[in-house]
Design a protein around this nucleic acid. Structure first.
Length: 480
RNA sequence: GGCCCCUUCGUCUAGCGGUUAGGACGCUGCCCUCUCAAGGCAGAGAUCACGGGUUCGAAUCCCGUAGGGGCCGCCA
């Protein structure tokens, strides 16, 4: 049977990294099995509609290369793919349940979750007591005649238990008395997630339902729905959570959670994809660097783990560096360019700069700070930087070297990396010195910092002859 | 509070009855090098949450306990 998976985000205005991983896994599983990956927009909460947020979903999928085969923008045989456009369908199916006695109208007041319940989670919240389920035909009719608003609730027989086999977590059994008569159709006529999800997954022929494991506890209710309709139950694959640094579900409170944030901060989409793929899944080999094509080839839902994983930005950064290094110089440059300060791109050969530092960059957002010294030397950098035990450089020695070097470089005809290095080498040789003790003062003088993203000769070349000589004499003067 | 789930180095993980418990990030050191935040090598770091079983033998199987997480919305 053809594999059909879906990603069913609700338009919230940003792409949560955990949701993106769910999308990735669903996508990979579909591709791996030459199946179909569907995008379905779950916009059934009218109160929470965020303008343009569907666009964010499209953009997120596009930038990460998680491309869907069917969706609101692409169409397909089982559309529409936006739930708000499927309202009639849900009503129709809810009424079928009503007619079959598997659902009932509920005229009770709204019982929305309050903030207090959120914080004081010790407060027991009791589920709906099912009173409207016991209303007589006459009472229902009377209410209807009065025009009382109502919702449709699923009628759950509180006897016995309901179970399902989760692909990751195995058999899950829940006593039916734990199950609430959940709302299927809201007062405004829109379905709840719980209902729309089941109806759509069935109608869209989804074979593998992949979602976060927070849905495990409500899945028995969905199972009962499938059974009430007499529908085949798809494979359920609940994914372990991604945790923030505090050990709780990754949330906005703890730094970046949105794909857009990571992108802005200089993480590459392919690195993010690679990293989140490894959060909860492993290939069974020691491979850690993956391109999307690698993932499609190696992905296997059988190797998804059960334990939640903490999101570790340090490792993401490392992986990001790996992906940057894997780029061609031209690709890298296209990536770096937007992150270079104007002061750098305006004055220097940025393409050359990229070539010199590509192997050192982890986050693109480090670029401004890494390259700032090119455009603006901190002329009052600490003089101690010249002192280096291993190179046996001292303030006195450095001054002499700098003065000599200034002369040597001044005589240089063409100003490029090779000739600069050649001149420095020649000078060192003439002095009977090793290269280190000469290069060190040079690099400090022209950069003003102990750590630079590339070597002294490269920096000198980028700076140009005039600026290099200016910095050299400046430093020599300070050391005098 | 009720129910469900999870538990191997700080972190991500391998392991599916017999391993010196392996790898990666990070950390430390060494090498290379014109610096290192790159590369190479090495090291520290996990009595496999704890307690009972089962077994000749358990990180691996079973049962408890503890800790953590999730759900209990006319949100998804």
């Amino acid at each position: 049977m053809e594999v059909r998976t879906r990603f069913a985000p609700s338009p919230t205005g940003y792409m949560h990294i955990g949701n993106l991983r769910t999308a990735l896994y669903a996508y990979l599983h579909a591709r791996k099995n030459e199946g179909v990956f569907i995008l379905r927009i779950e916009d059934t909460d009218q109160a929470r509609l965020v303008a343009d947020s569907v666009k964010v979903i499209y953009e997120s999928l596009a930038v990460t290369g998680i491309e869907h085969d069917e969706g609101p923008d692409k169409g397909g045989p089982v559309g529409p793919y936006t739930q708000s456009e499927r309202r009639g369908l849900y009503k129709e199916y809810a009424e079928k349940l009503l007619a079959a006695g598997r659902a009932y109208r509920c005229f009770c007041e709204k019982t929305e979750k309050t903030e207090e319940h959120d914080e004081e989670h010790e407060a027991p919240i009791l589920g709906y007591d099912g009173r409207c389920g016991r209303l007589s035909e006459a009472e229902i009719k009377a209410n209807l005649d009065k025009g009382l608003p109502y919702v449709i609730r699923q009628r759950i027989d509180k006897e016995g238990s309901t179970s399902f086999k989760d692909f990751i977590y195995g058999d899950i059994v829940v006593e039916n008395k734990q199950l609430d008569d959940q709302i299927l159709l809201k007062r405004d006529g829109y379905p709840t997630y719980n209902f729309a999800n089941v109806v759509d997954d069935h109608l869209m022929g989804i074979t593998h339902v992949m979602r976060g494991c927070e849905y495990i506890s409500s899945t028995p209710k969905y199972i009962l729905l499938y059974k009430a309709f007499g529908w085949e139950i798809p494979e359920h694959i609940h994914l372990p959570h991604i945790l923030g640094p505090s050990g709780k579900k990754l949330s906005k409170r703890e730094g970046s959670v949105a794909l857009g944030d990571f992108l802005k901060r200089g993480f590459l989409p392919e690195a993010i994809l690679n990293y989140i793929a490894l959060l909860g899944w492993n290939p069974g080999t020691e491979q850690e660097f993956f391109t999307k094509a690698d993932l499609i080839a190696k992905f296997d839902i059988a190797r998804i783990g059960k334990a939640p994983a903490m999101f570790d930005e340090t490792k993401l950064a490392w992986l990001n560096g790996q992906h940057i290094r894997a780029k061609t110089p031209d690709e890298a440059h296209a990536l770096f360019l937007p992150f270079y300060p104007e002061s750098v791109t305006g004055k220097f050969d940025a393409r050359k700069l990229t070539g010199y530092i590509q192997g050192k960059v982890e986050k693109l957002s480090d670029l401004p700070q890494m390259t700032a010294f090119l455009a603006a030397l901190d002329e009052n950098f600490p003089k101690d930087l010249f002192v280096h035990a291993k190179n046996k450089t001292t303030l006195e020695g450095s001054r002499a070297v700098l003065q000599d070097l200034a002369d040597a470089l001044n005589c240089l005809g063409d100003w490029e990396y090779g000739s600069i290095l050649g001149a420095v080498k020649a000078y060192a040789e003439a002095k009977g010195a090793k290269l280190g003790p000469v290069m060190w003062p040079l690099r400090i003088a022209i950069s003003g910092q102990a750590v630079t993203p590339t070597g002294a000769a490269e920096i000198a070349e980028l700076l140009g002859k005039a600026e290099t000589l200016r910095r050299l004499s400046l430093a020599a003067a300070r050391l005098a």
